[in-house]
Design a protein around this nucleic acid. Structure first.
Length: 266
DNA sequence: ATGGCAGAGATTCTCTGA
C-alpha cells in the first residue's frame, strides 16, 4: 500500500498537475492540504476520473483538506475539523481507509502557520497543536494502525532546515513548536521519512521566490507519521522532489509530495 | 531591511502563505 501527503496550494489551480501525479505514482491513500476551494468547487469528477474516491473538507479562499483513496479501497469519514478550533478553518480530516484488519485510521492536517513569533497567530498555533494532541490521544490508541500526515508548519530539527543558524528561534524553528511535534512522537507516532533516513537533510517545501528550489533553500515541514503498526510495515519512504519542478509546463505547488510504501498488513 | 512568487477574491489591488 502506498500512502502520501501533499500540500497542493490550490486544488483548482493544480488540478492538471495533481492528475498527472496520481496517474504516474498511483498512491492508494493521499492526504491533500491547501485546497483553497469550498466543497462545491472541488473538482470531484476530474479526480474520480483518475481512479479515486474523494472525501473533502474545504472552505472559501484558504485552507481545506481532503483524503483520496484509489480504486475500490473503502473510505469512511471519522472526523471533520479539529474540535474547538473551528475559527482556524478547515484544517483536519480523518477517515477509516481499508477494511477489516487492514483498516487504517488516517488523519490529514494543515497546521496553522503562525506567521511570526510576535504575531497573535503564534500562540494560537501552539494551542491548535495542543488541541490536536488532546483530540488524537482521546480518539486513538497508539497500538492500533493510524497515520497522521500533512503540512505541520514546523521544522522539527536543525537538519530539516536549509539555514538553522539564521532561523533558530524564529517561526517554524522554535522550541515551543518543536515541543508540540515531540509530543506527537512521544505519544506513539514515528516520523516515517526521518526514521528511514536519519541523516538526510531533505526538504518538502521551497519558496517560490528567488530560485529557492535550485539554491536548495528549503524546509522539511510535511510529514507522514505512523503508529508502530504502520511504521513497522514501511518498505520505502521518500520525497517526490521532481514534482516540485514544472511538469509539462504546468506550475508546481511550493510543496513536494511525501510518499511511503507499506508492506501488506500481517 | 526589503522583495522576491503564486493563488484567491474582490477590483487593479489586498491578503495569505512559510
Amino acid at each position: 500500500m502506498r500512502i502520501a501527503t501533499w500540500n497542493v496550494n490550490g486544488i483548482r489551480a493544480r488540478l492538471e498537475f495533481v492528475s498527472h501525479w496520481l496517474r504516474e505514482r498511483q498512491p492508494d491513500v493521499v492526504g491533500l492540504q491547501e485546497l483553497k476551494a469550498p466543497d462545491a468547487e472541488f473538482p470531484l469528477e476530474e479526480i474520480e476520473a483518475c481512479g479515486y474516491r474523494v472525501l473533502g473538507y474545504g472552505q472559501k479562499s484558504w485552507n481545506g483538506v481532503a483524503i483520496l483513496t484509489r480504486g475500490e479501497l473503502p473510505i469512511e469519514e471519522l472526523q471533520r475539523g479539529l474540535p474547538g478550533q473551528d475559527d482556524f478553518g478547515a484544517r483536519l480530516l480523518s477517515a477509516r481507509v481499508g477494511e477489516g484488519g487492514d483498516a487504517i485510521d488516517f488523519t490529514t492536517v494543515y497546521v496553522p502557520n503562525g506567521k511570526s513569533t510576535s504575531h497573535d497567530d503564534f500562540p494560537k498555533k501552539l494551542a491548535w497543536y495542543d488541541d490536536l494532541s488532546v483530540h488524537l490521544e482521546g480518539r486513538l490508541d497508539p497500538t492500533s494502525p493510524a497515520v497522521l500526515c500533512g503540512d505541520f508548519n514546523v521544522v522539527p530539527t536543525a537538519l530539516d532546515s536549509w539555514n538553522e543558524a539564521s532561523h533558530e528561534g524564529h517561526v517554524f524553528h522554535t522550541d515551543e513548536e518543536r515541543k508540540r511535534v515531540r509530543r506527537l512522537l512521544d505519544w506513539g507516532f514515528s516520523d516515517l521519512f526521518r526514521d528511514a533516513h536519519p541523516d538526510d537533510g531533505a526538504f518538502s517545501w521551497w519558496d517560490y521566490r528567488g530560485g529557492a528550489f535550485h539554491r536548495k533553500q528549503g524546509l522539511r515541514i510535511d510529514f507522514l507519521l505512523g503508529t508502530r503498526a504502520v511504521a513497522s510495515r514501511v518498505r520505502e519512504v521518500g520525497i517526490d522532489r521532481d514534482w516540485r519542478k514544472k511538469v509539462e509546463g504546468l506550475t508546481p505547488s511550493d510543496h513536494a509530495p511525501v510518499v511511503a510504501d507499506l508492506e501488506p498488513a500481517a
